[in-house]
Amino acid sequence: MKIKTTLPAQFQDDELLTPTKVNKNFSYVKDAVETVASKRYCYSTVVLPFCLGVTAISEADNQATRSFLVYAPITLTVDTVFLDGALASGAATLNVYNASTGTTAPTGVANPIITPSTTSQTLSYTQSIVIPAGSTYRFELTGTAFTTSRLDLQLVFKSDRFLPASTDTKTSASYTPVTEASLTNATDFNTNVTALQSAVSANAAYTNAVRVEAYSFVNFATGTDADLQKHTVPLSYSTQATGTVFALYQHAAYASAGSVFNTVTATLANAAGSATGLAGSCNMNGVTEAVSIDTSPTVSLASGTSGAPSNTALDYSLTVANNAATNCKRSTVWLFIV
C-alpha cells in the first residue's frame, strides 16, 4: 500500500534540508558570536530574576504599617509583585512609593497595587515598576486590624546589564570605594546613594555583574533573641556564587520613636565566625526608621570546589544585631556582590 502524504508548505522547500542551507545557518550563528567577541561588551537586556526574601509582613507585631525599602544601585525593574496569604480580619492595602519617604506613587502606578482579602490566595501586580539607578522605592502595607494576618511579599526583579566579554576580569583593585557612612536621615542617605551610584557606574566591571541579594529580619532585641539575629548566606559551589561584596544597604525600623539611642548593625562573617570587615550600622538615634550604606568593604566570598556539596564551610553568616532592648521590628539588608 502506498501512503500519500502532503507536507505543509513551510517544509516543501527542498533547500531547507540541504547541507548548504544548514551550513549557512551555522555560519550565521558563528558570525554573530564573533561579532560579539570582538567587542569588549555586548550590551544586552539580561534578565536577572531575584526576589526579596519572602517573609510574613504582618505577624502579630501590632504595626499598622510595614514598609520595605528597595534600593537600586543599577536600574532595576520590579517585574511582578506577589502577595500571598490572607487577612485574619480588617483591611489592608499594598502601596508603592517613589522614595523612602512621602506618598508619591511612581509614574504610571496607581495605588493601591494589591488589596488583600480574608481569602487565602496569591495575588499579583503585573505592571512593571522601573526603579531608576540610585533611587529608593518603598513598598508599604497599610491597614487596620490585620495584626494576626499572614501576608508574604515577593518581589521579582529584572535588570538590564552589560555582558562582560570572556576576557573581562572582575577585580576589586580598580574599584574606588566610597567613604563609609552611617546615616540617620533621607538627605544624607540620598547624598550617599548618589556617591555609591557614581562609584558603580565608574567601574564597568562592577556594573557588569552586580548581583543583589536581600535578607529580612524581624522582631529581635538584644538579650532575648540573640540567635534570631543571624541569617546564613549560603554559597553555591558553582561559579555564580563567588564574588566580592562591595556594598551593604540596610533599612531598620523600630516599633516606636522615643528616647532610645541605639544602633542596628549588620555584619558578615565566614564559616569560622571571623568578621570579614563588612559592617553597616543603622544609627537609630531615637528615630523609628533609619538606613545605612557601607560601601568601603571588599569582602571576598570564597569559591567552592566543584562537586563538593558537603562543604558547608562555604556558608557565610549575616548577622543583624540590635544593641538595645527595644524591639527592632524589622531590618532588611541588601548585599551587592560582583
Partner: peptide, 25 residues
C-alpha cells in the same frame, strides 16, 4: 503569563538566583 522576565532576554547566561523564605515565631 504574569511574569515577563523571560520575554525580552536575548542572551545566554546561567544565573543562580535565590529565594529566601523566613518562618518566624
Amino acid at each position: 503569563s504574569q511574569l515577563t522576565s523571560l520575554q525580552s532576554e536575548n542572551a545566554t547566561l546561567p544565573v543562580c538566583y535565590r529565594l529566601n523564605v523566613d518562618f518566624v515565631n
